[in-house]
Design a protein around this nucleic acid. Sequence first.
DNA 1: TTTGATTGTCGAATCGTTTTAATTTGAAAA
DNA 2: TTTTCAAATTAAAACGATTCGACAATCAAA
Lengths: 337, 337
Amino acid sequence: MGQKVKLSTIADSLGLSTATVSLALRDSPLVADATREKIKEQAQTLGYIYNRRAASLRTSRSGIIGVVVHDIMNPFYAEILRAIESELDRNRQTFILSNHYDSVEKQRNFIETLLQLGGDGVIMSPAIGTPKHDIDLAEENGMPAILIARSVDEVDVPTYRGDDAYGIALATNHLIGLGHKCIAMVGGTDQTSTGRHRYQGYVQALQKANIAVDPDLRIPGPRTKQAGFEAAVNFLSLPQKPTAAVCWNDLVAIGLMNGIARAGLVPGKDISVTGYDDLEEASIATPSLTTVWNGQAEVGRMAARALLDKLNGSSDADGLHLIRPEMRIRQSTSPLK
Amino acid sequence: MGQKVKLSTIADSLGLSTATVSLALRDSPLVADATREKIKEQAQTLGYIYNRRAASLRTSRSGIIGVVVHDIMNPFYAEILRAIESELDRNRQTFILSNHYDSVEKQRNFIETLLQLGGDGVIMSPAIGTPKHDIDLAEENGMPAILIARSVDEVDVPTYRGDDAYGIALATNHLIGLGHKCIAMVGGTDQTSTGRHRYQGYVQALQKANIAVDPDLRIPGPRTKQAGFEAAVNFLSLPQKPTAAVCWNDLVAIGLMNGIARAGLVPGKDISVTGYDDLEEASIATPSLTTVWNGQAEVGRMAARALLDKLNGSSDADGLHLIRPEMRIRQSTSPLK
DNA sequence: TTTGATTGTCGAATCGTTTTAATTTGAAAA
DNA sequence: TTTTCAAATTAAAACGATTCGACAATCAAA
């Protein structure tokens, strides 16, 4: 519990200057090998702890990167985060994580905190209704932003997400190919860019197959298992008696399947269900879930990479980068009986 | 993109000193109301951003709290984290999150990073095999630690977790009460304190009911849905033909139920299954899961509270604090046929 | 008018690094 | 011995806030 050990503690104990010690610890070629060795050893035995805030005050690079998403508890984001984490880890950046729960205010708070801490950059899945101004706040204060999973209108920073319209069309076409004609779309909102794209993809696939689009077959709702479970009641009591459901994501799909099973029907047989995202969980659900791979790991990895490159000045990948989704066919869909 | 706005920018623009500006922005009663107003307004219009690292260099309080758990993607930890987050948020602390994936080294790295950043405290669910020394590292450098979910031998810092032996006994007794005699225990490891306590609870409950304990009925494994799913094969091919399973947690239980269903049996009817933790998901699984409430939200809230109190010097809740689990009976268990 | 208390403001040192430009050292070349 | 030059080390000025002790101004009481 002695006094705090700092550069000067080491310097004094060896009869050197702090300058030398500082350089030595950072492996500068300016200092003699023997000296460097001695210094490192002494630092070790004294239990020296590098003070990053003092350093970053001088250098204005903090090694901190912020990540803010809707909800880290949601496996969709969790899979992205894991990829981001491993990429940042590899580059010895510290990352600060936050949920915004789609509150623009909470999100702005986070950005401000990050600026105060001297964050080097921020990766965000913007909250619904995020104004351009909030992104600018970060950028103008020298903290580059990268968007994932969602876009923000008029904002040109690097953005990585799946091609939602294309992906949902894959799922819809798969069901149409199995002979289904009455296909509901369950879960999600139309307030996000994602939501609009997905609904579009669904509508266009139906139209291309000359199937009339019935707005009543759109059952919006939260994007959770719980919501999917509860949506089953509405779904099963639709007068049109849909035989299949395109779900917003795997969580909704699994919830819906549970709800269908609870009502005594067999999901995958009586009702075909598709998910979206291809979470780890999709393949072990019962029945295993037919879904659309949405490249979470890709998105996370590429976003982190883009930020690191930007910080190194080695590239500027501004604008939208779409990951192309792929179909994963399993047991939850079957031909119309 | 002008020069960075700092205290002196504001001071100069108003013909005041940085001292006054600093005090005013922090609502010190020392400065006149009119002056304070003027200063705050000016700060606003200039777009001033408080530089926390400069401040904390002087004050040695950073407002940063670290949290490290096995895996934030695991809903068990996610539920704890959510509670911690809301408590810390309320007290305007920033929290830095990390997984350690049970790597002691990654965990130590995190602690070191946190020390470098001047973290005020750390909440951790210690990695398997965490040495006392690593906790001391934090404490000795003035960064108090709080443990959650697991204990570390010989370490006396405040620790919050469920009473595992008691909880697993609840589940085992419930099954015994339903007439089951051949009860397997699925998932988890015996390398953690948690693991040892849970196995103990299981064994003691059996013994008290005069049921012989068969070590072959212990099927250890990872604590994931995937693992539970895969364990089904082993479980179903045990020569003793168990009629019930006490699972390590809800994830394993749900995976196991899926695996049982995949094999053509009906979980909850043919085989009774209990979970542990009472995740949000437990009640919407099919069949809904009989499980043990383990107070994740409580643990998170209390741990955060304890740390904040410690930082304010208002209390020292050293030692172990057990949350008492409760039974949640649902559809996945039924009387022995 | 002087004294004392009160209120509001400020100068300057400090926190622990980094970094530039300058200085010292030591060995080789003259 | 001096000169030259490269290599190794250092002094000191940042970075942007906080805070202590001093100082000036105002006002009430003596």
